[in-house]
Each structure stands twice: as structure tokens, then as C-alpha cells.
């Protein structure tokens, strides 16, 4: 009984993760602004994948060290990569002219 309950909970988590994945990746094909797509991707990539990893954790508890590592890596890497992509979308700040540039 308890076994099937865990199986069901895991299936729900995996399914919810998949729903978030599709919700977040589908707008990538649309014409929305770049940053809006990034917001959607943070839902899909970070939160959707997090739910899926939790589902896997329930399904294969024996692999918890690697899954925990994946969880940690995923959340930190995805979030910071999202920030890097967002920061890169801005126009570069005006650089003060160096001596080399001003030389003829």
C-alpha cells in the first residue's frame, strides 16, 4: 500500500514537472520579448526539472546522493545561467576611450 502511494506521488511530481516544462518551452517559439521567454524558462527549466528530480528521488531512493547533487547543481546553475543570459541581453555600457583607441 505504502509502496503504491509513493509510486503515485512520484508520478504526480513527474507529471507536474512535465506540464511546467511544456508551459515554459512552448513560448520559446513565439514572438514574445527575450526577457519574457527567460522568465518562462525559469519556470520550465528550474522548477519543472526540480519537481521531476523530486519524483525520481521518490522512485529510486537508493540513488539519493547523486540525485541530491543533481538537484543542487540544477537549481544553482539554471538560476545563475538565467541571470547571465539576462545580463548579456543588455546593451554594453559605454566604455571610456582608452589611449589606444584615441591614438591615430
Amino acid at each position: 500500500m505504502a509502496h503504491s502511494l509513493v509510486d503515485h506521488a512520484s508520478a504526480v511530481l513527474l507529471g507536474a514537472g512535465l506540464v511546467l516544462w511544456f508551459w515554459g518551452t512552448w513560448p520559446l517559439l513565439g514572438t514574445h520579448s527575450y526577457l519574457r521567454k527567460l522568465h518562462a524558462l525559469s519556470v520550465a527549466d528550474t522548477l519543472g526539472s526540480l519537481l521531476m528530480l523530486l519524483g525520481l528521488l521518490l522512485r529510486i531512493p537508493g540513488q539519493w546522493p547523486l540525485l541530491t547533487l543533481a538537484l543542487l547543481g540544477l537549481v544553482v546553475w539554471n538560476t545563475i545561467f538565467g541571470y547571465v543570459l539576462a545580463a548579456c541581453s543588455l546593451p554594453p555600457p559605454p566604455q571610456p576611450a582608452t589611449e589606444q583607441d584615441s591614438a591615430p
Binding site: 537549481v75 541571470y83 543588455l90
Partner: peptide, 9 residues
Amino acid sequence: TLTPFTIVL
């Protein structure tokens, strides 16, 4: 940045 409403630029 983790929360979907906000991203640091």
C-alpha cells in the same frame, strides 16, 4: 532570479 516573477539584469 530563482523566482519566476523577477530576474536580475
